[in-house]
Write a protein that binds this DNA or RNA. Structure first.
Length: 270
DNA sequence: CGCCAGGCGGGGG
DNA sequence: CCCCCGCCTGGC
C-alpha cells in the first residue's frame, strides 16, 4: 500500500507519541509492527510512505487512511500554543487499534514507564500469543482474551508485570465470558463506554480514556496523565480541576486529538 | 540505598 | 465523596 499524500503523516511521530507499544524501528529506517494476525512494515520511499501488509483492508483501517487531518487541524488551530503544538506533531495520526490489545496495554501502562511497558507487552505476546514467521524471524500476535483467561494463577509472573497480573486476568475473564463486551463500545457515547471499561480492575478514568481514544476513535475524550496536566498548567495556566471544562470549551469534539498534539509537544519542549 | 515512572484500588476521614 | 497511601519492578 502506497500513501502518496504523506504531508499529515510521519511514522516516527505516529509510532512514538505514546499511543502504541508494538512498533519497533529497524536499523534501515523501517518500522515493523504486528496488528491482529498480520505483520506490517512501514517506511519512506521517494516522498511517499509505504505500508506493507498481506491484508490491505486491515492496514487501511488501522491507519485510518481516509481521515482528513488537514481539516481537523484547521478546526483546532485556535491559538498560538496549539499552532506550535500542531506544527511540532504535524504528522501524528491516531491509529485505530484493537480494543482488547489496547485495554491490556494501558492496564500495564499504569504507574509504569514506556521501555518497561513495551518489554512486558512483548513478553506477553511471546509467551501466550501465536507465532508469525517472516524472513526467518519470529514475531508474535497479541494473545486473545480466551487464551489469557485460562492461564493458571502465577503463569503470568513470567511477564514481570508485577501487581498488574491480576488486573490482566480480571480483564481476560470478563471479556472472555462476555460480562464486558468490547464490541458494544464502538456505537456508544464515550461516557457509557467509560463506565463499561471501568468494570475491569485496573481500569480507571485515565486508562479508560486512552482505550476510548486509541481503539474506538472517541475524539471527544481527553486522557489526563501526569504529563498532560503539567503541559496544560505550563502552557495554558489551567489547574488540574479545571481541565475537563477548559478542553471541552476550547477544543470541543476534537479535544482527544488536541491532547495528542499537546502531549507530543510537551514531551519535546518541557 | 532511596526515588520515581504516562494510575489504581482500598481504606479511612 | 474526597483524600491518601501502598504497590511489582527495573533503572537511575
Amino acid at each position: 500500500m502506497i500513501i502518496a499524500n504523506a504531508k499529515d503523516f510521519d511514522l516516527q511521530q505516529t509510532f512514538e507519541c505514546g499511543q502504541c507499544f508494538r512498533w519497533n524501528k529497524l536499523c534501515d529506517d523501517k518500522y515493523i509492527g504486528v496488528v491482529g494476525d498480520f505483520l506490517m512494515g512501514a517506511y519512506y520511499r521517494d516522498g511517499s510512505i509505504i505500508i506493507e501488509c498481506e491484508n490491505e483492508q486491515l492496514a487501511k483501517e488501522y491507519f485510518d487512511i481516509e481521515k482528513d487531518y488537514s481539516e481537523m487541524k484547521k478546526r483546532l488551530q485556535c491559538d498560538e500554543v496549539m499552532a506550535k503544538a500542531i506544527s511540532a506533531g504535524y504528522g501524528i495520526r491516531l491509529l485505530k487499534q484493537q480494543p482488547w490489545e489496547t485495554l491490556v496495554s494501558f492496564i500495564i501502562s499504569a504507574n509504569n514507564n514506556i521501555p518497561r511497558i513495551k518489554k512486558i507487552i512483548e513478553l506477553l505476546c511471546q509467551t501466550f500469543g501465536n507465532e508469525i514467521m517472516k524472513d526467518g524471524v519470529k514475531y508474535h500476535t497479541f494473545p486473545s482474551a480466551e487464551a489469557l483467561a485460562n492461564v493458571d494463577g502465577d503463569a503470568l509472573s513470567a511477564i514481570r508485570c508485577g501487581y498488574r497480573d491480576k488486573y490482566i486476568i480480571d480483564a481476560a475473564k470478563k471479556v472472555a465470558t462476555g460480562e464486558v463486551c468490547l464490541d458494544d463500545i464502538y456505537s456508544l457515547p464515550a461516557d457509557e463506554g467509560r463506565e463499561i471499561l471501568k468494570k475491569i480492575k485496573g481500569v480507571g478514568d485515565k486508562v479508560a480514556d486512552c482505550i476510548l481514544l486509541f481503539a474506538y476513535q472517541k475524539y471527544d475524550v481527553f486522557p489526563k496523565d501526569v504529563w498532560i496536566k503539567k503541559v496544560l498548567h505550563k502552557l495554558y495556566f489551567v489547574a488540574e480541576k479545571d481541565i475537563d471544562l477548559f478542553v471541552r470549551q476550547k477544543f470541543g469534539k476534537l479535544c482527544g486529538l488536541a491532547q495528542q498534539y499537546l502531549f507530543y509537544y510537551g514531551r519535546q519542549t518541557l
